[in-house]
Nucleic acid binder design. Structure first.
Ligand SMILES: [Mn+2]
Ligand SMILES: [Mn+2]
Ligand SMILES: [Zn+2]
Ligand SMILES: [Zn+2]
Lengths: 130, 130
DNA sequence: ATATCAGTTTAGAATGATTCTAATGTATTG
DNA sequence: CAATACATTAGAATCATTCTAAACTGATAT
């Protein structure tokens, strides 16, 4: 991402110092899965003293603009995904790590949803052992 | 379930008054998805004043004996499933409801897991709109 | 540039699901 | 009926997340 400020403005987000730092990290071209905590730790290493409240605010602001996906993998924390394409995941509980599955996968044999309900999206989570 | 006390003993669980009430409800032959809160509400309606601590303890005891499955659907609460067979779910966020998908579904095109990792299980969650 | 103001950041408090503590109660066994 | 290991419980603690309200700052108008 060359012009982060422009990118933020395009998405109706004021390019504040904190948002620029966070966006520069998140949208550096490498897809990431972050939690508020892992992001905070990364920012601390970068000597960016951004409060947890702002980290939560920013993740949600980016989510609301469609720049991040929210992943509900477990009940311990919320993951945010910089890959906003429809895709699936490997999940290692042991490592608390997610790995994108970007290749085409097809789920066969889904029954009809209940009356008046429409399928919104299909999420496949492949749990890893080791 | 006819003899709940026997059933609990078989699973190395003392048939206390509270466990008998909870097991009678959970294992009545109709598969259920409960949270600590929904179970507590149900028990209140049944005039069974069982403390939240006991409800949490019991759900985890049953889980540890393999009588319940734990479902991590969202980051708001933990669901316990009386259907311990491998199966998938419809999920309506709006209704906060899960519906079993017991028919055979096949996921095609899963890539190889990373080195040294084995696939443990594949979980398909079909999100509903309405 | 400076003033203005809506939007943002922040520390710290609040929330809410879950877990823990430690005192009391009970099922089991001899 | 003991003795005791296990279970229940109220209330405190924990921890991720959200909220509050005061201080701050980016954008816009003069
Ligand atoms: Mn985390
Ligand atoms: Mn609930
Ligand atoms: Zn992803
Ligand atoms: Zn189920």
């Amino acid at each position: 991402m060359k012009d982060i400020k422009h990118f933020l403005r395009q998405n109706s987000l004021r390019p504040t110092k904190q948002r620029v730092i966070i966006a520069n990290y998140l949208f550096d071209g490498v897809n990431k899965h972050v939690t508020a905590e892992t992001l905070s730790n990364k920012l601390l290493k970068m000597k960016a003293g951004i409060s947890l409240a702002t980290i939560y605010n920013t993740l949600h602001d980016f989510y609301e603009k469609g720049l991040l996906k929210k992943l509900m993998i477990n009940s311990e924390r919320i993951y945010f995904d910089t890959n906003t394409e429809h895709h699936h995941h490997f999940y290692s509980k042991k490592d608390q790590k997610l790995i994108d599955i970007n290749v085409d996968m097809k789920v066969n044999g889904i029954p009809k949803p209940p009356k008046n309900k429409k399928i919104n999206k299909i999420e496949v989570l492949v749990h890893l052992d080791n």
